[in-house]
Structures are given as C-alpha cells and as structure tokens.
Design a protein around this nucleic acid. Sequence first.
DNA 1: GCCAACGTTGGC
DNA 2: GCCAACGTTGGC
Length: 151
Amino acid sequence: MNYWLIKSEASTYSIDDLQKDKQTPWDGVRNYQARNFMRDQMQIGDKVIFYHSNDNPPHIAGFAKVASKPYSDATQFDKKSHYFDPKSSDENPRWFLVDMAFDKKCKRKIGLDELKNDKNLEGLMLIKKGQRLSIQPVSKEHFEYIEKLCN
DNA sequence: GCCAACGTTGGC
DNA sequence: GCCAACGTTGGC
C-alpha cells in the first residue's frame, strides 16, 4: 500500500467533479517523474490525497483511491486535445495514467498555511519551496495525520 | 554534453 | 498579473 498526493486546479477538475464522476482517468500528466510514479509504483487501492492548487487559499480537499492499473493516456493521441503529443506513438506510448476513484471529502478545507505551520507535517513534499510536482509520494504517517485533520 | 531560451506551475 | 522555480528543447 502506497500513499500519494495529487494536485488539481479546483476550477479545472475538483473533488466535487470526481465525486460526481465516481471514477476518472487521471489524464494530462506530462511530467516524467509524475508519470513514473503512476506507471511504476501505483497499485489498485493506494490511497491518495486530493489537493486543490491555484485556489484561494490552496488546500487539501479530500481523498481518492487508485482504481486501475496503469495504461496509456488516450489524450496523447488526440490531435484536438491540449495534451496531444506528436512524439508519442501507439507502439511506444510516452504517457501513462491510472484511474482515480472518489473516496471522501474533507469536512473542512485544510489550507496551505495550516499545512506549512504544522510541525507534524515537516518534510511533506507539498510544502517544500518550489515543489511543483503534480503527483507526489506521501509517508504513511503524514497521510494518516492529514486524514485526522480532515475529520 | 552544455547551456540559453523558452514554457509551465502555482503561490502570492 | 507577476515572478521564482524548475523542466524541456534544441543549437552548438
């Protein structure tokens, strides 16, 4: 069992959208490190923190679960998609994703400030300066602590 | 293989 | 809207 944090702009795809959809392919990730986490390490049932970036304030909004094995991201082949990648091919797809399933919403929004000021969350990748990775591993301890904050 | 130019992320 | 951080691209 692994623990993760995923970012999404609330205005683009929020936890409410995921709740409505129940499950969705986590497409559009175009960063190799993030891809590698999905392709090489994520397993069905892994627990995921859902973070709303670019919100006011940015915050943790809830939880999701990994709901599929990794497979290739269809948007890379779609010429009309913002995520189209001409360098990718059917034989050798460059980008992979997993499905994310809705788990639960936080009872309150856990703002970035609060996360930064919480001694229990020291070392959490999200709150390190300049950390832009949209998929990050989270320790079990941090995950369980954040779960408590949300209840 | 270096590195300048450029693009994106995301907090503020 | 600004800009720091950082990843990618491409010329050499």
